[in-house]
Every structure is written in structure tokens, then in C-alpha cells.
Computed example of a mutant assay.
Amino acid sequence: MATILSVSGSPSATSRTSRLLRHLDRELAAQHHRVVPLDVRTLDPGALLGADVSHPHIARATELFAEADAVVIGTPVYKAAYSGLLKSLLDLLPQRALAGKTVLPLATGGTTAHVLAIDYALRPVLSAMGAGHVVQGWFVLDRHITLLDDGGVALDTEAAAGVGRALHAFVRALDRAPDTASAAGNPVPTAA
């Protein structure tokens, strides 16, 4: 099965975005995928803002992107765009960090006025970074996410259905994805 990097671009320690991603991580793991969570807020802020790509946190994040077959990216929406924290990390990654990878973008926000942030702000960046396939993402209103005491989330019916469809499309795309090494332009080893 696939190795999936699950990236939260939320700066908040009590983030609905991060909790939603960890909920999806469990669903993907139950389907026998290897899921690696990455909360960008845990990376060294000085290295992020100072563009220190040699810092161990940034170097490790870059490795995680390289090792992943697919990426789920979640972000809260601020000022009609994805978080500046996520932007800081994406700016430090190699230009083709998503080459050949299947990507699922998710966003959370307080109002439906931000619903197009995925398509108009995040999707172009993911495509520019070489994503092999950016599946249709999903926007979830904050009020449709209930934080549970056990660290999980409960989604209202509409949000659960939308997120479920997006996740299903992502998994289907993973099943159809070509070998990531050949998609990235690297030779695929063959048995002699």
C-alpha cells in the first residue's frame, strides 16, 4: 500500500484542521496505508521564516515529502487563502517536491466565503510543484466539526459525506496512480 504524508498547515495546537486530518489518517491506516503525520507548527519557526533548508526540521520535512507516494494537505483558511505557515513550508521545498504524487487538499474555515480557497489559492501551488494528480478537495465549515474529548472529531452529516467522497476519490486515485519513481522521471529498477 501507499505511504501517505498527512500535512497540517494549522498554527493552532487545538486545531480543527489537524484533528480532521488525524481522523482521516486513522481511516487511511485502516485501509492498510502507511500514514505519516506532519504538523508544520512543530517545525522550528526560525528555520521556517529564515528559509534555513539545512535545519534538521526542514531537511526532515523535505525527506518526508520525497518518501511519500501521496500527500494529504489540510489548512485553515485565513484571508481567503491557505495558512501562511503552510506557505512557509511549501516555499522551502524543492520545486518538484510533489512530482508524480497524488494530493488531496482539505480546508477548514469559519464561513462559506472561503470555500474557493482550495481551487484558487492552494491547487495552483500544488500543481506548480508537480503533483501528478490533485483530487477534488473539500472545504469544511468549523461549525461542522465537533472536537471530542478523546482527541477525535465528529463531523455533521453533510461534512462527513463530503469528506468521505473526497477521501474515496483520493484512495481510488492512489489505486490507479503509476509507480511514483517512473512518474517522477526516475528509472524503475527491474529484476535481472
Rank of each mutant, 00 (worst) to 15 (best):
D69K: 04
T180G: 11
Q31M: 12
G137E: 11
D150R: 07
P105W: 00
G46L: 00
R165Q: 13
V188N: 00
L106Y: 02
S18N: 06
P187S: 10
L148Q: 07
D69E: 15
L116H: 12
A47Q: 01
D39S: 11
L43T: 04
L28W: 14
L21E: 01
L167I: 03
R26H: 10
V35Y: 08
T112D: 13
L89F: 05
A113S: 13
I145A: 00
Q136S: 14
G109I: 08
T157D: 15
A61L: 12
S54N: 06
D91Q: 07
V71Y: 03
T3S: 14
R19A: 15
S182Q: 12
L21I: 01
T42F: 04
P56W: 08
V115I: 14
S18K: 09
I73C: 08
I118C: 11
Y120D: 10
V188C: 01
L24I: 02
N186Q: 14
H55T: 06
S6Q: 08
N186A: 14
G137A: 13
L20E: 07
G151R: 07
S88Y: 01
A192Y: 05
T42S: 11
S54H: 12
A30E: 13
V188R: 14
A184P: 03
V40A: 12
G185A: 12
V134K: 08
G109R: 06
D142Y: 05
L90F: 10
R22K: 03
A59L: 13
T17G: 03
D39F: 09
H144Q: 09
L20H: 01
P124A: 00
A154Q: 13
A107D: 02
T112W: 13
G162Y: 06
V72K: 00
A30D: 14
A177P: 10
L28H: 04
G151Y: 04
H144F: 01
A160V: 08
D44K: 08
A166G: 12
A159F: 11
A184W: 02
D39G: 06
G109D: 11
A80G: 01
A181R: 15
T14Y: 09
D150E: 07
A181D: 15
P187F: 09
I58L: 15
T17R: 01
V103L: 12
G152A: 05
V7M: 13
T42Y: 05
L5H: 07
L155G: 05
R16Q: 14
L92H: 03
L43E: 03
L98W: 09
G50N: 07
L116D: 09
V40Q: 10
I118N: 11
A2P: 15
V7W: 14
A99S: 13
A30R: 07
A191T: 04
D179N: 07
S15W: 07
A51Y: 02
T180F: 06
S8Y: 05
D142H: 06
F170A: 04
H57R: 08
E27C: 04
L104K: 04
Y120E: 09
